[in-house]
Design a protein around this nucleic acid. Structure first.
Length: 193
DNA sequence: TTTGTGATGCACT
DNA sequence: GTGCATCACAAAA
């Protein structure tokens, strides 16, 4: 599978598993994606469940674009748009570059708290509503595939009240940088590029 | 270690 | 008015 727009033009469950281990950079900051969640069109936990709105409209546009929304009135959260009405929530990064800048934005130096949560990583990378709708294969984003396929763990999604039993949370096995420990199971290996 | 709660914007009923 | 795809900090146990 090539790493281009078609990589994202699939179900969110597939993409959420396959982007674990990729490096996401914005400017001089970034890290390895170690935790994601999938949100599908028929999924009652998904913003797209009740159809297009002003907030979620980019979820219904072309794949490989960023969907950014405000969470609880305070934080920003970053998603990768997949097939129409589906998206992958980026939940945690292992910081790799631009640590000083990210620490300054976060007001914090603990590497385990820098990017370990969807709101935290957006604050660390400076992601805001300004990034909503931007193409993922163009600036300011840079996405780099891993050299070797990642080992995947799965579990239940966090912070939702509908669809709680779906195993649509994915993590990098053994990572200390996830937002919450995975108790669960090993998932299928990612699709190779 | 787990549980509770305030802060805060906005889509939706 | 209600309910969030959250976080930080306090308090309990």
């Amino acid at each position: 599978m090539p790493f281009d727009q078609s990589f994202f033009d699939r179900s969110a469950v597939e993409v959420a598993r396959d982007v674990i281990g990729f490096q996401l950079d914005i400017g001089s900051c970034g890290g390895i994606i170690v935790e994601t969640e999938a949100y599908e069109p028929d999924d009652p936990a998904s913003h797209s469940f009740r159809g297009p709105t002003q907030r979620n409209r980019v979820m219904f546009g072309p794949a490989a674009h960023a969907y950014v929304y405000r969470s609880y009135g305070i934080h920003w959260c970053l998603n990768f748009v997949c097939r129409p009405g589906s998206a992958v929530l980026i939940r945690a990064l292992q910081p790799v570059g631009g640590m000083t800048e990210m620490e300054a934005r976060r007001g914090l130096a603990d590497p385990l708290l820098l990017c370990s949560g969807p709101g935290r990583l957006c604050q660390a990378l400076g992601i805001t509503i300004e990034h909503n709708g931007l193409y993922l294969f163009g600036p300011p984003f840079r996405l780099t595939p891993p050299l070797l396929p990642a080992m995947i763990v799965t579990g239940r999604r966090i912070g939702i009240s509908q669809g709680v039993d779906l195993p649509w949370r994915f993590g990098l096995e053994g990572s200390l940088h996830v937002s919450k420990r995975f108790r669960g199971k090993y998932g299928p290996p990612p699709t190779s590029l």
